[in-house]
Design a binder for these strands. Sequence first.
DNA 1: GTCTATACTTGGATAGAC
DNA 2: GTCTATCCAAGTATAGAC
Lengths: 222, 222
Amino acid sequence: MAKPGASSRLVTEGAGRSAATKQVLVEAAIETLKAEGFAGASARAIAGRAGCNQALIFYHFGSVVSLLLAALDAVSASRLEQYSAAVGHVGSPAELVEVAAAIFRGDLDAGYVTVLVEMIAGASSTPGLGAEVAARIAPWRQFAQQIIDSALGGSALGSVVPSDEIAHGVVALYLGLELLSHLDADRAAALSLFDRAKQVAAVVEVLGVGGFLPAPTPRRAS
Amino acid sequence: MAKPGASSRLVTEGAGRSAATKQVLVEAAIETLKAEGFAGASARAIAGRAGCNQALIFYHFGSVVSLLLAALDAVSASRLEQYSAAVGHVGSPAELVEVAAAIFRGDLDAGYVTVLVEMIAGASSTPGLGAEVAARIAPWRQFAQQIIDSALGGSALGSVVPSDEIAHGVVALYLGLELLSHLDADRAAALSLFDRAKQVAAVVEVLGVGGFLPAPTPRRAS
DNA sequence: GTCTATACTTGGATAGAC
DNA sequence: GTCTATCCAAGTATAGAC
């Protein structure tokens, strides 16, 4: 309910106006990180994109890096939510690769990973930022490990290579592809790599490879 | 030969003094990129590390980014030279993984890849820098493709997946591992991944996997 | 070739008006 | 809560002394 004396100015003076401004700033920070990178993500650049004043960043977030971390939080939450929704239950590695490819493609399109990459790379320039970023990456790695566990559990590969190591490698590959995709608008190369992974996973699955990978799960009949 | 009138001041006024200063600056730039990242690689920071004056950067290189690109050139040349020396001829994938693991370990230790990663991530903040960096990465990718070709040539895997795609993935993984290794001093995770790759490669090689990979090359008798 | 000094610009952060 | 104005620190780059 509106506080006593509230006028009819609904949008410009509502209770959630502060929250709205914060969100605008967070989204502008994300866009700026994507377009100009960490080094170009100054308070003035972000405020310019947000269409508001530079001083608001310090009023709402205290500092530029705090805003950037808030942006990373927002991206991370949004992505993990989508991941969890997409991966109801993954049976075989081939299925896993297929789902992962779709997710990755969406992330590349939206540029979410760019935010993460820029924050990691930029972290070395600000003392203490590394730990903050690391804490925000932990859920991603954990998620990757969980999904890999559910796909490789019980297979020979799964028992030879710990899932946390595979998860580390998958996240690294993900970040690296994102890095490279910026240089020459080489997004096609990353995407074709995912398609190729699907191919290879299917072949390996059919071959069976002597129990090295789990047996294929039955797909619904046509 | 010394020019006429050259005194006995050998070091402080030799013909190569300018070149020596440039090299000191280049090495300081490399160190600064490693320690402070692209965002922290200012003219003052680099000159401070070099132990000389900030103005020299503009005198010798014209701008800070030019110096940073010169640093990337130096790293790239040094690394490619070492790569070529290490990889005389690679027979099997297992051998390839072994050699690659040793090289990667050296690169991680020396922090060479950090320079590359920071330049890629920082490129988005400076117009035109992306293309310059891309041109300097091309040899790395080309080298990876070449060595992969020589290892997988004629195998089923080699004919299913084009070597340039594998090379792209390998370089991406390499960069991603480097990125992650900064966050939590998690270098151990990256190294154990390489060790694990050696294991897996050995297993796959022994299994043969129905010609999916090339047959093992004979090792020298004990 | 190197250094000091300095002009100029941009960025982080705060004070105070509205 | 937002904006204007401003201070101060840091950065790029140049001029000129040595």
